[in-house]
Design a protein around this nucleic acid. Structure first.
Lengths: 233, 233
DNA sequence: CAGAATAGGGAATGACCATTCCCTATACCT
DNA sequence: AGGTATAGGGAATGGTCATTCCCTATTCTG
């Protein structure tokens, strides 16, 4: 699969992934929306755990990006044979999208639970920022963020991934905006703070930390967040 | 040229580009450090303009990244035949490095000249931030930043590019730190502002804007920079 | 136990890509 | 004009990659 040749404007790409995304999964098992225990599907049951396999795919895609990851890299990381991958996913692109979903679901969970540990809006934002620094630092930071990676490597070439990335960023931003407004309601953040502008700026800060962390510059959580909290003054 | 397979830690890559970087350029012409007019080098002179060709390469690499850019994409963009590219550069990697240098030189120039239009440290920083937003917005923003792209796509896989990226980010950061200190000296920025911490945070902001802009979220210069200037309060 | 349906695994396939080869063209020098 | 040195350009090459094929294995149904 090749995504298309050069020039960006006019965007004359003959892109395969233009239409609505259909989550394929040939004979998807275990994701049944039925009541538990899930009614057995016909045929031999899948032997590997989908989430475990996707976690491994996530790791490779985070480290190598989309284009530098070969099916061979995926078979090694996911511990599946070529045929098995193509039995479970339409193609490499589908593996990537599934990995992306898995990644964002886990990250969203981590961010929300960091926020939940704060007593008021202000502390919740501080915790979210601290959590971002921790994920952008050291080994974890070097591994990279799949959203940032997709934004940079694929947004302009692949409309499907581009849409997912935008959705994810918008969701992150509005989560922060919500925390700011909550803080204004509970009195921990002054009324004169512009929630939307500040949230967008904080989105830039968090995504920027992932870039800086990937480039191995050291990030100090207390110092960085300490400075950033001025935005809520 | 393939950069290496999977796992990041331990980083067992057999990377070709580990050693010191030698700027190759087989029979580099015109970059002669001699006095003008440059003494003619032996053989047929190069017909194309190196900077023009590199600007075109920069554009492709910004839009498509390193791995998704084929030699065919480069020949089309640079308007050179395959053989001519390999006559002028060792390989694709060398084209990329030359393009990277060209890009960072131009960007540095643009940023410094934006700063120069400010009357004091505070206004210089405002101008730098405004300039970053303008470059991260719209068509230019969608085209992306080669430094951010390299950080995300190559830093972990390619030590040579990784080092260049880190150097560039560090240079951007210390430029900002310098402006903060200048502002404190000229009285436009309070003494209690922590120059280094604030500069690092502003580095995150600028790099984050490139990510957000690449994902096509709209960026409003006045609103974003208005919020960011609180960091200098 | 036969049949249907799907998973596991690995070899085969066809396309594409980075790089090299080689022939031609153009400069300078004597 | 002949020699040397390099550039221009495009065809040939060898390797890699995504994808398909096909054979085997395992489950459920009747």
């Amino acid at each position: 699969m090749t995504l298309s040749p050069s020039s960006l404007i006019p965007f004359t790409t003959t892109c395969v992934y233009s239409g609505t995304f259909i989550p394929y999964y040939p004979a998807m098992q275990k994701t049944a929306r039925r009541s538990r225990p899930a009614a057995r599907l016909p045929g031999r049951p899948r032997e590997f755990d989908m989430d475990t396999a996707l976690d491994r795919a996530v790791r490779v895609f985070r480290e190598r990006g989309y284009h530098a990851t070969s099916i061979g890299d995926l078979t090694a990381a996911m511990r599946l044979a070529t045929g098995s991958i193509y039995k479970a996913f339409r193609d490499k692109h589908a593996v990537f999208l599934a990995a992306f979903e898995r990644y964002t679901a886990l990250r969203q969970q981590q961010t929300r639970s960091a926020a939940a540990r704060g007593a008021n809006g202000r502390e919740q934002i501080r915790n979210v920022l601290l959590s971002y620094v921790e994920h952008s630092r050291g080994i974890e930071g070097r591994r990279g963020c799949l959203v940032v990676g997709s934004a940079v490597e694929l947004s302009a070439l692949d409309p499907v991934v581009g849409a997912r990335v935008s959705t994810q960023l918008a969701s992150n931003e509005s989560f922060i905006a919500g925390l700011i407004r909550a803080g204004q309601a509970d009195g921990s953040i002054p009324r004169h703070v512009l929630a939307d502008d500040t949230a967008r700026l904080m989105l830039c800060i968090t995504q920027g930390m992932r870039v800086v962390g990937k480039a191995r510059l050291p990030l100090d959580a207390e110092r960085l967040v300490g400075a950033a909290m001025k935005l809520l003054a």
